[in-house]
Design a protein around this nucleic acid. Structure first.
Lengths: 203, 203, 203, 203
DNA sequence: AATGAATGAGCATTCATTCAT
DNA sequence: TATGAATGAATGCTCATTCAT
């Protein structure tokens, strides 16, 4: 008896929007953003072509929304998980694990993130300006904290450290996507951290 | 008096091909591969639209050739430079410096490499299969060597190290491209190495 | 009140398809298949360029469909008319009359048939393989019948007779199309038959 | 010692013109006029693309010249052969034989005549206006003559007779071209004449 | 005369988006 | 809301023709 007409409608709306986003991830991952037709996404979502435009202004907005939604989830989940952790080292471990876990759990989403979202400088710039910067900041601050606590070296710039860690993790994802072999992505976190943590440690 | 008719013709051919490739780098960097028109490339190269097709079979072949040519240069220059260096540490330093120097010297080429060449899984796969793998191998072998010499840790996988270094450098390039500020890219090599080398060192 | 939603839709589809075919006949007759643009056909049909491709896979398919549809009509009408006629002589008369009547009634269609459909060996071969062969067979069998009945000469090959009659009729159509003067085509049937029937008669 | 510089040049000119026409017949027959490239014709003639335009104003002029030259030869040879023959019946026999002999001797030329020359109403009209009309006239006059001599029926129009004969012969050629089987074309003349001559005979 | 590299107009086809139902 | 038929702008590529050598 819980749902009112309004909330059920809202949920219907949300559901269809979700369906389109899911379909978008699948189709963009398979064919690439530029080669994917809006009609493909619509078919994959089980709706008519025109219906897509009741939920998104354009094909490009679907891509953006995929990114926005996933990033929002990543970050909010990240914040929640990190809130419990005090030690900078453990925080970095958690960041790396989450990064690889989330993308490792959804190969299509990973493909869209690693490949499609980089198909345009424009998008990269927005990407950079938006959630990505926030993400890097989380890492940077953790490094800074560690430096204050004396557990990380002081002769390196926190922002560089952050980029190094992000770049290393990103590369793991890209390699995993392109690999013909199938292997779990998350365990790579430990291997990256072995190198990175020693690299930044104060001894 | 040096050039014969033949060699001068050959040079003319090469020159026009080169002009198209250069124009391609410029235009693809500015507008993105999919948004760039063949006519844009032709105009930038100072030739007629149809002339492009005397030198390249398709728009896509221009992109491929940009990659092939640049990769060939990177690798051959890299081999030449590395041949002189015995110490694994110094080799890694050289790799990082060259990586950032080459891309830092040609922002447009860097954009094409970082952004456009990743716009399609298909291209990424070929990319991965071709020169990129060779590039990773150079790093991996150097790490392995260092491990044998006892200067690098033995508890880490050489291939993971290679990816971590590559990923970190790659991230420096991507950030540099997207940055609104203008700064020299090459010096970032030193900063990355400070972290990486300590991370892999045997103490 | 007759039409259901479904049948009215179906008719709409059929109508637009028909409109394109009619426009195709008109435009191809005027400018020739190779010189006609798909946009010309679309404009003549009163629709947008892209709409053509909702009904036909390609420009070439329009030409094929024109032929297929017309041939189907010719043959089915022919069979119906000929079914009533027993005498071989009367059957040949009817064939000739129908041939010239149908094409004489639609000059544009006649032009497409006489001129455009012959613009490619490929099409001619398919043409030959398909309905045309069937058409010749109708004539041939009638001749054969007449020979058995003793009213046609036995010293001539039925298939040659068929080709002679067809060729003569075809020539009448071609001349009529190209003639600057305007005259009715159908009456030519009688004149051709006067010669042909005496030519094949057993006396 | 016969040739002067001028005449030898003229012959060189003629030779290359001839080569292009021959190449044109071959290439147009193989690929069709619209699908054949000027470059194909040039290659087949063993010359450079641009050279074609020293001898012909356009691609279309090559097609026209093929027709003009062949028609001129047909007619002049026809006149020569027919000059010796008095009997209308024998003249018609000769016409039919020559028609099928000439085209039967050069399948490529036959294809161009039967198929390619009909690919445009425009060409057909000029065709009709030019040599073709002359050709029909030769037949028509012969029929008329035969009528005056009392050997051909008077109740039929000579021009219709001419078209019937031409159409029948034309159909033989078209069938021969399209046939998968290979057979000599010339003998068909006799078979056509058996029907036609009886058809027009005064008894 | 001969070459063949260069030109650039021309066009079939695709597909994101709209809108009447 | 949902549909999917209709739209029409957009573009890679071809090839007849030109022209500098």
């Amino acid at each position: 008896m819980a749902r009112t007409a309004t909330s059920s409608q809202k949920n219907a709306v949300t559901d269809k929007r979700e369906a389109i986003l899911r379909a978008g991830v699948k189709v963009f991952a398979e064919k690439g953003y530029f080669n994917a037709k809006v009609a493909d996404v619509a078919r994959a979502a089980g709706i008519a072509d025109g219906t897509v435009y009741l939920y998104f202004k354009s094909k490009n907005e679907i891509l953006h929304s995929i990114f926005d939604q996933a990033m929002e989830r990543f970050i909010s989940e990240g914040r929640r998980e990190l809130a419990k952790i005090g030690s900078p080292v453990d925080r970095l471990k958690k960041v790396a694990e989450l990064h690889l876990k989330r993308l490792g759990d959804d190969r299509d989403l990973a493909i869209v993130f690693q490949v499609e979202l980089r198909g345009s400088t424009k998008f990269m710039e927005e990407f950079s300006a938006a959630g990505f910067h926030e993400y890097l900041e989380v890492i940077r601050k953790t490094i800074e904290e560690g430096q204050k606590e004396g557990i990380f070296r002081n002769d390196i710039k926190p922002i560089v450290c952050a980029k190094v860690l992000y770049g290393a993790l990103d590369e793991m994802v890209t390699n995993w996507i392109l690999s013909k072999r199938s292997y779990p992505l998350e365990p790579m976190a430990r291997e990256v951290l072995m190198i990175f943590l020693k690299g930044v440690s104060a001894e």
